[in-house]
Design a protein around this nucleic acid. Structure first.
Lengths: 202, 202
DNA sequence: CCTACCGATCGGTAGG
DNA sequence: CCTACCGATCGGTAGG
């Protein structure tokens, strides 16, 4: 009985979490398509069938990994600054937490969303839509803080909010690029300098 | 004799070019790893063996595609502004040609180098090194024009050239991101606005 | 959660 | 440039 394959709900959830943790590490470095069932099962010491039981199909696994990546990002970035009131201080703190997140290389392949979005932006299907949705939600967060900063008088009344968001995202994409491709340790300094210029000299 | 598989050198080069054109289109949308020999041979109406004869291995094909992408980029961006003298006018024109290149969606999946670099930055091997080399060569081009702009007095003497390059690359990565993921047709306007701010308000 | 298996496709080679 | 083939791996299923 004790060594039977039947497990408790808690055990099942723990196994599921183990799969997702490993999947996220692999996918950030090798892509969501490079994440194969056989290799993943091998690394986790379980069978492909046992693994697929948790997610149904590879697409189900990919969608679960996207959710897991969002949870990690939320824990590492917005949650760390949620005590600050919305507005310019919060927006600046979000950006600093974002730079720090990329700088600390929490995932081995850098930003999962950058890698996965670039990989899937030319395709169609549920994974692409899930990624687009996460990106949209995150821009919405930034937009709320930027608008509040304007109504607080901390950013000029004529600030182009979508332009601001565009430039923030560019700074973060460049940070990920220089860290991952060039292993350029001065990239975080450059990101911070660009953000300073963005928030002050407008 | 006439319908024999023996072809002239010119025919061989033409076939090679056909393979590379198709490969570049596929790789920009689906990635350099998603470019499979079987599918490519199928789309071109030839055998896998005939195709591999031109490049030896898949890695050989991938390296040839990187070179082809560099040739297309060179033709579409730096070559279009080579008549301008090095310095700020040339740097600005290069950036405008770059924006225009992405805006016109010359390749179906957007910027090949953005896609391929993001795909390979977490790996090792000759393809990764080739991509890193192309990126470095391009930054060198930008650096030369930026330094000339400074010595011409068109940019402040204390301009941080590497910072400038970092920010230009961020603007282009964001442009590719918003075009490919969001199909946001206002992204080129944002890119141009960000570049204006970068070159004037320093 | 497992073993055992499926058809399809992968990169690549032998031989012509 | 082709046909015919190789072993390995892909995602996934049947049955327990």
């Amino acid at each position: 009985m004790c060594v039977s394959p039947r497990r408790s709900v808690a055990d099942t959830l723990e196994t599921r979490q183990r799969i997702l943790d490993r999947s996220l590490a692999i996918a950030s470095a090798e892509g969501l398509e490079g994440l194969t069932i056989g290799r993943l099962a091998d690394e986790l010491g379980m069978s492909k069938a046992g693994l697929l039981g948790h997610f149904g199909t590879k697409e189900g696994l990919q969608l679960a990994v996207v959710d897991e990546a969002a949870a990690v990002f939320a824990r590492e970035v917005p949650q760390r600054v949620k005590q600050l009131p919305s507005g310019l201080p919060r927006l600046k703190a979000v950006c600093e937490a974002w730079v720090s997140y990329l700088e600390r290389e929490v995932l081995p392949g850098g930003c999962f969303f950058t890698a996965a979005t670039t990989e899937f932006d030319g395709r169609s299907g549920r994974v692409r839509e899930a990624l687009a949705g996460m990106n949209a939600l995150w821009r919405r967060d930034l937009r709320i803080h930027a608008r509040r900063a304007i109504s607080d008088g901390d950013l000029p009344a004529d600030t182009d909010v979508e332009q601001l968001i565009y430039e923030i995202i560019g700074i973060m994409l460049a940070l990920n690029h220089f860290l991952q491709l060039e292993h350029d340790s001065s990239a975080p300094v450059r990101a911070r300098k660009a953000l300073d210029r963005l928030f002050s000299a407008r």
